[in-house]
């Protein structure tokens, strides 16, 4: 190596600048994301109930208790309900959004007049806060003033639509609002995928005599694989993080009918003073998302490299 001594100061500074510029962000990410994750994992192994962790005399307010929080967590019916609800919610939310999104994208791709007018209507819900969405749907579905009341006012006095107040159906109203918010965005992802397909392939398939149905089923939809994958990952990630929508629409009720892991974590941590259990539930949520995101991000970053 002939470098070293003859490298002047400015050049050396220039060599270090990029890393220097990157470091504050990296430091923040390492502390506030990865450090905090470790911290929460640690809390999940303690019997902490509330903040702070150290009392006035400098004594720690908690003890390490191993996996007890996890054992307790899995024995709680409250958590069971949250997980079951999440399964229903995430499953239907992803399937319905994907279906509607693909349908609308295909329909919009038929050289629709006024596409530029329709598309923004499908998409604007994504710009809204879940609290706004929740508020709107909460009152629209409210039996006292919403659809039930309106239809009854039309003269069908026996009409009932009280799902939002019904333990067995309330979760589906949350799904409805969530689908309303995200399906337009799913449409946009599929539309981008459709517009990216080589038109010569379509011409060739039409020459081959493929019907529209076969054209989509055999040629086009199989080529949307990346769009399906992206849509799945984004929707799954949004589903697991769902919190504000439930708070705004049902507050987790009636009873615990619409509790989700996110609301469970929040109430155990901040209202029920069971921070250890709250932390344990957060760790489970993280692991679920990591199981989906890490392989996806890994493949995306690796592809890009080559």
């Amino acid at each position: 190596m002939a470098t070293g001594a003859e490298v002047d100061l400015r050049t050396r500074l220039q060599n270090w600048l990029p890393k220097l510029v990157l470091s504050p962000s990296l430091a923040m990410i390492f502390v506030f994301v990865y450090g905090f994750i470790l911290f929460t994992v640690y809390v999940s192994f303690t019997d902490s109930r509330i903040l702070p962790f150290v009392d006035k005399n400098g004594q720690t307010t908690y003890e390490l208790i191993g996996f007890s929080n996890y054992e307790k967590l899995f024995s709680l019916s409250h958590w069971d309900i949250s997980v079951m609800n999440m399964a229903i919610y995430a499953g239907l939310y992803i399937v319905i959004c994907t279906f509607i999104g693909l349908l609308l994208a295909i329909l919009l791709d038929q050289k629709i007049r006024g596409e530029g007018f329709i598309r923004p209507i499908f998409l604007y819900p994504m710009a809204l806060s879940f609290i706004v969405t929740g508020t709107a749907w909460k009152w629209m579905l409210d039996p006292a003033i919403g659809f039930e009341n309106i239809v009854q006012g039309w003269g069908w006095t026996t009409f009932t639509f009280d799902w939002i107040k019904n333990r067995d159906f309330a979760i589906y109203t949350v799904i409805l609002a969530a689908v309303w918010q995200s399906s337009g965005f799913t449409m946009a992802m599929f539309l981008a995928g459709l517009r990216g397909i080589d038109t010569e392939i379509l011409k060739a398939a039409q020459m081959d005599g493929a019907s529209n149905w076969n054209l989509y089923r055999r040629i086009i939809i199989p080529q949307l694989r990346p769009a399906f994958l992206s849509a799945f990952v984004i929707l799954a990630h949004l589903a697991i993080k769902t919190f504000d929508l439930v708070i705004a629409m049902t507050g987790g009720g009636p009873g615990r009918a619409t509790e989700l892991p996110a609301t469970f974590m929040y109430s155990y941590t901040f209202s029920r003073n069971q921070m250890g259990i709250g932390a344990a539930s957060a760790v489970i949520m993280l692991m679920t998302i990591a199981a989906i995101m890490i392989p996806y991000l890994y493949s995306e970053l690796r592809e890009r490299k080559s």
């Binding site: 990410i29 903040l51 990630h237 993080k241 941590t269 932390a279 957060a282 993280l286 998302i289």
Partner: peptide, 13 residues
């Protein structure tokens, strides 16, 4: 990956 974590994991710290 930090973009996609459920923020519940950082609420307590």
């Amino acid at each position: 990956f930090a973009c996609f974590i459920p923020f519940q994991i950082v609420l307590i710290p």
